[in-house]
Simulated scan of single mutants.
Amino acid sequence: MKHIMLIAGEASSDFHGACLAREIFSLSQNIRITGMGGQAMVKAGVEVVFGFSDLSAIGIVEVLGKIPSGFKRLEQVVAFLKEEKPEVLVVIDFPEFNIRLGKIASNMGITSIYYFPPTVWLWRKKRANTIARYFKKVICVFPFEAEVFKNAGAKVAFFGHPLLDEIKPSRQKEMICNDLNLDPNSRVLGILPGSRKGEIKRLLPVMLEATGKLLKKFPDIQPVIVLAPTIEDRDVLPYLESVSFKPILLKGNTYDVLNICHLVLIASGTATLEAACLGVPMIILYKLNWLTYLLGKLLIRIPFIGLPNIIAGKEVVPELVQTKASVRNVVDLASIFLKDDHARIIVQKNLAEVRKKLGCCGATKKAAGLILEMAMNNYEKGIRE
């Protein structure tokens, strides 16, 4: 039986790994998919041998604390590769771990594919050369990054962004509001504080305090907190004890909830792109350990943090970074969107242009077809040998 191994190191790559696995299984039942991942990949039918809850971190300084766990997990995965010898290794994002793993796999003669490659167009551009050397194929998700990897000598495929296949609300607004006991005539304020505990600690208190002040100005808004799969209720409940209002707390159904939001307060990351694809106005918040932030300022030469703004090449949604991510600034910006429909319409038009730049639907199925084809070729080659 053909064997594909997937490696995901945090929530968003677990999601994309799950989507990819489902498409591969839809193309061939005679396939075994193993790997490192989370619950999304498990539900998709992947034989998840290694978890990642002890590895996920954000920022340079934060990552340092994860190094011992990372090296131990790398040794475990390499041992599994040596024993199982899959036809293809597919790594998803998570570059500090996956580039090392790709080098080792390449030296073992295992075909490696990078899906959702690291943001070499943002910083550390030399990684593109390393990836081109050790990975047989790089499946890019942005057209501009495909050019960067091509120029580095990589064999590149670009089919569009996989999110376009997945961002589909499953129900009408009235049904969603009814299920959540929301007034369909009121405005929903979405709160998405991130997928890592560090983000929750830094951003959620600001978002909650700002929401309390906004409720005094706009009593019709209904706050809904949407948790990432990697965050449990217990991670956020202590922060809710000190607020005077009762937000709805949800896990899952992110697209349904985003689709009914008038505005979202959102941590920088993949969720901002999801909101952009749904045309939801947002305020992006970003806070890091100060040393991480200062190091990043030295290394990253790009004017924006949020993916919608990076893709647009201009600020189409407001970003509040570090000290600017304050309660007062959130309230001031949110008040503009809550008072002025014209401001929302302008943002929605710009977000529609961002979505167009992501390419066409069907990217995940095309990526799955390419990966399966490479696995089949290696499998048949192995039989002949």
Rank of each mutant, 00 (worst) to 15 (best):
M5H: 11
S12C: 11
A21Y: 03
I31W: 04
M36G: 02
E47V: 00
F50Q: 05
I67F: 02
K72L: 13
K72V: 10
A79Q: 15
I99K: 02
R100T: 12
G102H: 03
K103P: 00
I104Q: 10
M108P: 07
I110N: 02
P118T: 11
V120M: 08
L122W: 11
K125G: 07
K125C: 05
N129V: 07
A132L: 05
Y134H: 12
A146C: 14
G153H: 06
A154E: 03
K155W: 01
L163F: 15
R171S: 11
E174G: 02
N181A: 13
N185C: 01
G190H: 14
K201F: 01
R202Q: 04
P205H: 12
D220C: 02
Q222H: 08
V224E: 06
D233W: 13
P238T: 14
P238I: 12
V243F: 09
V243T: 14
N253C: 03
I266V: 15
A267R: 01
L288E: 01
R301S: 10
I302W: 04
I305N: 02
A312Y: 09
K324R: 13
S326E: 09
A334F: 04
I336Y: 03
A343S: 15
K349M: 10
N350S: 10
K356P: 14
K357T: 08
K366Y: 00
L372D: 00
M376E: 15
N377K: 15
